[in-house]
Amino acid sequence: MIVKHKINLIIPSEVESRRVKRLKFYLPLIATVSLLIFVILFLLSIIFVNTNITKFNNLNLEVDNLEKKISSFQTTEGIYTFISMMLKNIDQIARSQKNYLPLLDQISELPSSTIKISTISVNDQGNVSFSVVASSSASLDNFITFLMEKDNNHLISNIKADGIVRQKGKYLFNISFLADKSIFQ
């Protein structure tokens, strides 16, 4: 009796897990895409670098040439720069200068027929002071009234009179006031 032996030649198929199946599907895809992207970006970057380095070198060359040209104008540049600085400085000084002329015009209007002004001083703050000799109390009053009118017209302010000395029928006194910006700036 012949004994039958069964030989299974088909390799039993191994059941792959779902994860392995998914990995086998996605990983080659990711690898291919990333490789492609890498190659494209790498090539693009090389092309960009090479093109722009030439452009950059040309720009630098242009800058060098211009710098050489500008160097030949160094004297003019120096004079121009210094002039610009000095003009700014002169303008600053001119702005800080005070114009005394309108104030002097006002002072020249003072009634000088009946009073005698011996000393006048003005400073850059607009402070004006006088040493005055008046021949009579009327002329003294007249002088004060004149100043008060100027005060009312806002041309001067802060009028102050120091002690009035009566000597040999004459009135000696010192008077000071502050000139307004409209006549002293």
Partner: peptide
């Protein structure tokens, strides 16, 4: 020269 006047005092 640019000059800035600080004070003036005068008498007659």
């Amino acid at each position: 020269r640019i000059v800035s006047i600080k004070s003036i005092q005068w008498d007659y």
